[in-house]
Simulated scan of single mutants.
Amino acid sequence: MRLPIVINEHSAEPLYHQIEVQLRALIVSGQLEEGTMLPSIRELAGMVKCSVITVKRVYRDLEAEGLLRTRQGTGTFVTHVGEGDRNRQRLSSVVEALELALQAAIRVQCTREELEELIRDALHQHYDRGDEST
């Protein structure tokens, strides 16, 4: 199975985190349904051009969150994600992204007003062109 995971080699964000965030989003959004078998650790490492240890960590972390289950000799599968868990996970990834954006704004000394304007502009750009579903 080919997963739509894109790595930014120029990002300061660690590879395992980039992969984990994208894989979590695929599961929580329902794009990867319960029971879907994921690529083996070696296979995914080859796809995204990273070490096996990196993918092993991603799978272990997502398994600890209850999003994946590994069966010895069978593979790694997406587990059932309840609606409450799905919403909590979905919103937590947005909160995390907003927190990173806020940290970036603070680093470049944006004022609160500038940040609010940037957010308003982004919302207007996105919703005014009719992309409410994306």
Rank of each mutant, 00 (worst) to 15 (best):
G84I: 05
H126K: 12
R60K: 14
V95D: 06
D85F: 11
H80D: 08
G66R: 07
L44D: 00
L23W: 05
L100I: 07
G66D: 05
A12F: 09
E43L: 03
R42E: 00
H10Q: 13
S93I: 14
S51D: 09
V55Y: 00
I7Y: 04
H10C: 06
E13W: 07
S40Y: 01
G75V: 04
L115E: 06
I19P: 00
L118T: 10
R24T: 10
A97M: 08
S93T: 11
Q18R: 03
L62G: 01
E9W: 12
D131E: 13
I119C: 08
T76W: 04
R71S: 04
R112K: 14
T70G: 06
E20S: 15
L32C: 01
T74S: 07
D128Y: 15
S11M: 12
G84Y: 10
E113T: 14
I106L: 14
Q125A: 14
E132H: 15
E34F: 12
T36D: 02
R24Q: 14
E132D: 11
S11G: 07
G46R: 01
R90E: 03
E20Y: 09
G84A: 09
V48G: 01
S11W: 12
S93P: 01
Q89S: 09
A101L: 13
L23F: 03
Y127W: 07
L91P: 01
A45Q: 00
M1F: 10
Y127E: 02
G73T: 04
D121H: 15
V78T: 05
V108P: 01
L118N: 11
E83F: 13
Q22H: 08
G66E: 05
G130H: 08
I106S: 09
R42A: 00
T79H: 04
H126C: 03
I27N: 02
T74R: 13
R2F: 09
L123R: 14
L68V: 02
T74H: 07
I5Q: 01
L67A: 05
Q31G: 06
D61N: 15
H17M: 13
G66I: 04
E83P: 02
A12K: 13
S93W: 10
T54Y: 03
